[in-house]
């Protein structure tokens, strides 16, 4: 079973700080979603609410059509793996897996064993004595083997070296194809994980600035370079993400589709139109801009 997610006008405040600012989106479910945002953009806060780690005070969060907070019909199907283990001192790897086995209805013990072997995790060691990477690997093991209808990995790769991260991505894809479910991943390593996502959501200072299919997003931005006045002409009416000028040459990054017509005209006028990769687009969309005063 795959579960969809519906977030309506969600706002979260911590004192004066607005961590999540009037965010709304709908995920149809059964896909791999990427949640991108800089540190402090509200990703973790948002994901915590999907997994009922905290009550929703303003707005609405629905998972499978129901509110997750204090509703174990939902929470037993939602597994959020955070970057840091929160098991108390003295808890061993085995203890964590025992609890997961009891509380996760779709838990797959054999799969967990296989992942433990793959990550070479010692079962008897206490969690606090595991290295950073081992703790991440344990989180990944719990997250995948829980086979939860909604599985969320919030930067669950810290301390893992590149080969192990790629093992994680391979496992995630393989298991997702075998048991389709809703997977949400937040990561800073956009170059590594961008192609895993079917849809991408970008948060910037608590606001949702983009929610698109990955392939759509890849064509959503463009960098237009050439003589300044021509560049301005072509990019008129589009959302300008950034601009740079050197002498008479200007390079403008825009968000939005440049019409075929305009593209043809631009090219014949000698302008260069390059597409913005996911990483570039992310950087532009979440850049510190001077607030208009």
């Amino acid at each position: 079973m795959t579960l969809g997610i519906d977030v309506r006008n969600l706002t979260v405040r911590f004192g004066d700080v607005v961590a999540v600012d009037d965010v709304s989106f709908t995920l149809s479910g059964g896909k791999i979603y990427g949640l991108l945002g800089r540190n402090g953009s509200g990703k973790t806060t948002l994901l915590s609410l999907l997994a009922a780690f905290a009550p929703v005070r303003q707005g609405k969060v629905l998972v499978g059509g129901a509110e997750p907070f204090e509703n174990s019909a939902v929470t037993e199907k939602v597994c959020l793996i955070r970057e840091r283990s929160i098991a108390p001192d003295g808890t061993t790897v085995k203890d964590i897996l025992n609890d997961a086995r009891v509380f996760r209805p779709a838990w797959d013990e054999k799969y967990a064993d296989r992942l433990l072997d793959m990550f070479q995790l010692p079962r008897k060691k206490t969690v606090s004595r595991l290295s950073r990477g081992q703790q991440s690997a344990l989180g990944i093991t719990v997250g995948l083997a829980s086979r939860a209808s909604v599985t969320i990995f919030d930067e669950s790769y810290l301390g893992l070296d590149a080969p192990t991260r790629y093992d994680f991505y391979d496992e995630l894809l393989r298991d997702y194809m075998e048991q389709p479910r809703t997977i949400i991943m937040s990561s800073h390593l956009i170059e590594e994980v961008g192609r895993l996502f079917e849809e991408v959501l970008i948060l910037d200072r608590g606001r949702l600035v983009s929610h698109e299919e990955t392939d759509t997003l890849l064509t959503a931005g463009a960098a237009v370079t050439g003589p300044a006045h021509l560049v301005d002409e072509v990019t008129q009416g589009l959302t300008v993400l950034s601009q740079q000028q050197l002498g008479g040459t200007k390079s403008t990054a825009v968000y939005g589709k440049i019409s075929e017509d305009a593209q043809a005209r631009a090219r014949s006028a000698g302008l260069e139109i390059g597409s913005l990769g996911l990483q570039d687009l992310f950087v532009h969309l979440t850049r510190e801009r001077e607030e208009p005063t």
Partner: peptide, 11 residues
């Protein structure tokens, strides 16, 4: 194909 190239299967 998706597994081999580490890309989303829907893609």
């Amino acid at each position: 194909y998706a597994a081999f190239y580490r890309i989303n299967p829907a893609t």
